[in-house]
């Protein structure tokens, strides 16, 4: 077969033809992008998953000095009923000593701005590489600072869940929570 040449804008009014091409190309591109969205959105959490994204926990049964672990969004959440000593210890730390400076007060305030120093609620996932730190069960090693100790790489957290020593860069994350009464906390 013989070769053929490509006719590029030889016939017709070139400006009109270019405009038509550009308009069509642009519209097709818009359509393509708009089509991509539902495919991407499809992988986002579904409505039934989102419906479970907050939980309510009754903390009445947790005695002073005790703690519970609850599962929230597939991760452990530590709820600790701190002793007055632990609170004092957490409040006494100078911010300058902290790798990730944050006051204890800021970490025990719920989304309704109410401060409850006796309740420490943190996500039990080490900020280093995602292990679950020890220290929420009685008898667990709690590290030098009396809070949490991550067995994977030796990160140590204090009684406010703040990082004090080890490779973790950040304090244990405090989830959004709000006390709807003195005994009922909604996490998420």
């Amino acid at each position: 077969m013989a070769s053929s040449s490509i006719p590029a804008g030889v016939h017709g009014d070139p400006t009109r033809r270019d405009f038509l091409m550009v308009a069509t190309g642009a519209l097709a591109a818009v359509g393509g992008i708009a089509t991509a969205w539902p495919f991407i959105n499809n992988l986002n959490p579904a409505a039934d998953t989102l419906a479970l994204s907050s939980i309510e926990v009754n903390v009445q049964a947790i005695a002073v000095g005790q703690a519970v672990t609850v599962k929230w969004r597939g991760k452990p959440v530590f709820i600790r009923h701190r002793t007055p000593e632990e609170i004092k210890q957490a409040e006494a730390v100078k911010l300058a000593e902290l790798p990730d400076p944050q006051t204890d007060n800021a970490r025990v305030t719920d989304t309704a701005k109410k401060v409850r120093p006796e309740w420490l609620i943190v996500i039990g996932v080490c900020t280093h590489l995602g292990c679950v730190p020890l220290g929420n069960k009685s008898g667990d090693p709690r590290g030098e600072f009396g809070g949490y100790f991550c067995p994977c790489h030796g990160s140590q957290y204090d009684t406010s869940g703040r990082i004090r020593r080890g490779p973790a860069p950040k304090n244990l994350e405090v989830p959004e929570y709000v006390f709807s009464s003195d005994t009922l906390v909604k996490i998420g």
């Binding site: 539902p38 499809n42 579904a46």
Partner: peptide, 9 residues
């Protein structure tokens, strides 16, 4: 019902 754009897919 629940998956985003799932009905469309």
């Amino acid at each position: 019902r629940d998956v985003p754009s799932g009905w469309l897919m």
